[in-house]
Amino acid sequence: MTAAGADTRMPPSMLLGVLAAVTAASFVLSLLVGPSGFGFGPAGEAGTLIFWEIRLPRAVLGALAGAALGLAGAALQGYLRNPLAEPGLIGVSGGAALGAVLAIHLGLSQAVALALPVGGLAGAAAAMLAVVSLAGMQGGAVTLILAGLAVSAICTALISLALNLSQNPFASVEMVFWLMGSLADRSLTQVWLAAPLILVGLALLLSVGRALDALTLGEDAARSLGVDLSRTRLAIVAGTTLAVGAATAVTGVIGFVGLLVPHVLRPLVGHRPGLLLPVSMLGGATFLLIADVGLRLAQPAVELRIGVLTALIGAPFFVWLVLRTRGELTP
């Protein structure tokens, strides 16, 4: 970063304030848009129902899932010092989807509703541990992506196996739901199930900001500044697992948000991975809310899937990122 670039940057409190306002505006916009028309729903009982039971849960889940994915992406990239780290790419989202599928198809979520998000975060945790033990916490970018690819492939295979064995006539459609997530027609029931766990995860991830800033000076310097590295690692693993696991259990896999958002917003914060955390959280929420509004405006009568849109935007960005970092990636 040049000195001139640093001068034009907003002070952190102002940046966060502006982003929070943009997120709040996106949230309100999401409440205003729907197939029955612009505004807070039609008058009368139907309008009340549409606002409280359909649009509100959708907006809340969009904001929470986007925040979870954006923040987890920023935390993973900061801690692993790896530009390609992202919950979707490293298999955490796939693990979460597998855990949720198992919770549903083994009948656990019918017996105890909380089994669904718990299944999601158990799957996310298992995937996270598998990737970290395959690639190592300090493994190179390529090793991490390969390990993530392997874990994702295993999760996808196990999801299709579970759906095949369940013999339900909707298995193939459900596969699409889990691989290309959706915010459509979610209810407050799902919000109540997932939101507390997502919020705990977000809090854990936000708590590592100072440690990530110190880590830019190297591990020894960070330690001398009083950073407990094993605690930081635990907070990131647990936070990602909770936030992404619980969100994915109710929305399916929404890819590339955790990759795209921190990269786009990084120029705003310079080399301060700690500040990038809240910035990416707000940015992720805004991105998902706006993308979801766009879907509903473009094609109000047919539900397009949000995961399709984020992949359409995110995958070309991923290609660009690979091209840009090719020099660094080649061993």
């Binding site: 129902l49 549409i50 039971e53 359909i54 339900n168 909707f170 298995a171 799902q190 399916g252």
Partner: peptide, 17 residues
């Protein structure tokens, strides 16, 4: 059927309808 897709049939808005 145990499927995530059946969530829409249990949706409070559908129940109200």
């Amino acid at each position: 059927y145990r499927t995530a897709l059946a969530d829409n049939l249990r949706h409070p808005a559908l129940q109200a309808l």
